[in-house]
Amino acid sequence: MSFMKLKAISALLTVINFINNNKKSGQWWQSRHRTMLRGVLAKTFRLVGYTIQYGCIAHCAFEYVGGVVMCSGPSMEPTIQNSDIVFAENLSRHFYGIQRGDIVIAKSPSDPKSNICKRVIGLEGDKILTNSPSDFFKSHSYVPTGHVWLEGDNLQNSTDSRYYGPIPYGLIRGRIFFKIWPLSDFGFLRDSPNGHRFSDD
């Protein structure tokens, strides 16, 4: 009697176990599909997440810290030749630490999608010599508040503030201070060859 009882109980337990197992994982093929689908989904989500994360980190770095920039055009010769690679930092723009003589990258005032690379000649309130070399008479002007006066080092071949006037400080993107390429010129950038352009005070 007791033996029969035990057998019945064990059979019942087996059935319950079987049902429970089936409830948990469904049919064997269903469960396998589900795990595969889950793996693919997880992988996709992880990829999208990492892309967003690193994109955002890159944005923050380029916006607030600095980055590597390639310069083109003849306007900054001989300091920066055409297609030199330089390092630019954006911290001094955010902390308003741009000084006379710094080379900056700024948005072009006539085309906001293109950038220009010039040297800061005067800050707000400075007296600037605005005549071109061909002019006989000297003419001066003052840089208005919130603006800077930019000029290329190659005075003969540069479209700069002598042509479009002082530009607002808000257009400045960053300051160039270190040249990476070509290797023969590796190091900090030289001072302006046109020192006489700076105002005395």
Partner: peptide, 20 residues
């Protein structure tokens, strides 16, 4: 993001007189 504005839009700008 592409600097496209229409006449009549209300926009915010960095002040040209005071960059802060």
């Amino acid at each position: 993001r592409n600097f496209e504005v229409q006449r009549g839009d209300i926009v915010s700008l960095v002040s040209p007189k005071n960059p802060e």
